[in-house]
Simulated assay, not measured.
Amino acid sequence: MRWTLPNILTVARLAAAPGVAIIFLILPRPFADWAALILFVTAAVTDWLDGYLARLWKQHSRFGAMLDPIADKAMVIIALATLMGLYGFTTLLILPVAAILFREVFVSGLREFLGNKAGSLQVTKLAKWKTTVQMIAIAVLFSYGIFEHHFGMNVIGMSPEIVRQIMSGEIEDEFNLILLSEGAIIAYRAGLVLLWLAAALTVATGVDYLVKAMPHLKEDPHD
């Protein structure tokens, strides 16, 4: 293996995957929310950058081709698990997460079973789009955590304490606080919409891979 810059970026992205979760064990919120968001977005950018540099400098390698999808899946799966831990097992969150996790496990198992024949399951443009939408959705949901921690306890409005302070006159700039609370609601809803879109794209790519694999899954009549 050559330690080219694209490979280094891929390895760094893989190392960042557990870091997104570990941050919440080390730092208090909202510092952890900020750190996780910055780390996740930076790692997501390297997903595009390492491929771009590899093509530009003609530094493609078997190691990079092997590790790149693993790093992507690790980033998405660990980030989704972290979000579930932060925001709870709500129906609107757990269903798309379950669909994404099921597809990733299913396709990974399919590739492992096919072995050398897995070349028919090359990454498609649709699969690249689903990874992009997944990462955008996760980043938006991490940003909601920042809003939620500062300006509201849940997605339906401001915390009772902020409401009490506004009503008692302790906080005078209630207009900005209301806007920030609305920002939390928008971030959460936008994140959910994007996550459901990502889940739909994820399932669609899983079905596409299954259809492509079916000729290799038929029973041999001579067995």
Rank of each mutant, 00 (worst) to 15 (best):
W48D: 06
R111Q: 07
F89T: 14
W3D: 09
P69W: 09
W196G: 04
F151R: 06
P28V: 12
L83V: 08
T4W: 00
T10Y: 02
L53F: 13
Y188N: 11
K128I: 03
T4C: 04
N176T: 14
P28G: 10
A184W: 00
A139Y: 08
P30W: 02
M214Q: 01
I70D: 03
L179E: 09
F175V: 15
L86F: 05
T82R: 12
T202M: 04
F175D: 13
G115Q: 06
A99I: 12
D220E: 12
S143P: 01
F24L: 10
R189V: 04
G145M: 01
E174L: 00
H149I: 15
P96I: 01
Y188W: 15
G152A: 11
F113W: 14
L201T: 09
K130G: 05
L195Q: 09
I186D: 01
Y87A: 10
F102K: 03
A44S: 13
I22K: 09
L192K: 09
T202H: 03
M75E: 09
R2Y: 08
G85S: 11
A198V: 01
H150W: 14
F142Q: 08
A200Y: 08
L101N: 11
T132E: 07
V140T: 08
Q134P: 05
R29Q: 12
T91S: 10
T91R: 10
F24I: 05
P221W: 03
T42L: 07
A99M: 15
S168D: 15
G169I: 15
F147M: 14
A213K: 02
E174A: 13
A35F: 07
F106L: 09
T42W: 03
R2F: 14
E104R: 08
L49G: 05
A15C: 05
G206V: 05
T132K: 10
I8Y: 08
K130M: 11
K218C: 00
G145F: 02
S120R: 10
E182N: 03
K58E: 14
E174C: 00
A98P: 09
V97E: 00
P6R: 10
S143L: 13
G206E: 04
K58Q: 14
R2G: 13
K212I: 02
R164D: 14
F102R: 11
F63K: 14
W34I: 13
